[in-house]
């Protein structure tokens, strides 16, 4: 084999593995546990204190989005509960500056996917089925791949009506 052929082969291997590496980084090394502006712990709220999910994510039953609690709701409790903790102080700062908290999205779906929380909740699904053991997480970690195969496997298993039709999720 002459040098040129070897070089071309090297290049081809490099390109292919580059692609693999890119994909792998996307799938397995993506930051599934991003840092949040406030170290909010679901473990304390949903786990230890057993606040129901839909007390804060109040739209999940009524809308396609579940909603994040408005700052007023946070401050409503925390003006009394643990007002001196440093994380609550951060919350207080946001409230006093009339700024919303810039939470980082953990479960982020692309624009071409239509996912209604409402239908899934009404079908009797537990939040934990997709979001994992939230009540034991200090910082939220994405537990599902959110890939189409993942969606479809459940739709197939549960024999969802029209569950494999493209226009059920892509409009």
């Amino acid at each position: 084999m002459d040098t040129i052929k070897k070089l071309v082969l090297c290049a081809v291997i490099a390109v292919v593995t580059f692609g693999i590496g890119y994909k792998v980084s996307d799938a397995y090394f993506g930051n599934r546990t991003p840092a949040q502006p406030i170290e909010f712990s679901h473990k304390i709220h949903a786990g230890d204190n057993q606040i129901p999910c839909m007390y804060c994510h109040s739209y999940a039953e009524r809308s396609r989005v579940s909603g994040v609690p408005n700052v007023k709701r946070c401050i409503g409790c925390h003006s009394v509960i643990k007002p001196d903790s440093p994380e609550i102080q951060k919350l207080k700062n946001y409230w006093e500056n009339k700024e919303p908290i810039p939470w980082v999205k953990v479960y982020n779906l692309p624009d071409h996917v239509y996912f209604p929380h409402k239908r899934h909740i009404k079908a009797g699904l537990e939040c934990q089925m997709c979001h994992g053991d939230v009540q034991s997480m200090d910082r939220i970690t994405r537990v599902s791949s959110l890939k189409m195969g993942w969606c479809l496997s459940c739709h197939t298993r549960k024999k969802v009506k029209n569950g494999r039709d493209c226009w059920t999720c892509h409009i």
Partner: peptide, 15 residues
């Protein structure tokens, strides 16, 4: 593009 269960001609953008 395919035909779906409601008799609609579907266009799937991401495909």
């Amino acid at each position: 593009t395919y035909h779906n269960q409601d008799g609609l001609n579907v266009q799937v953008y991401n495909r």
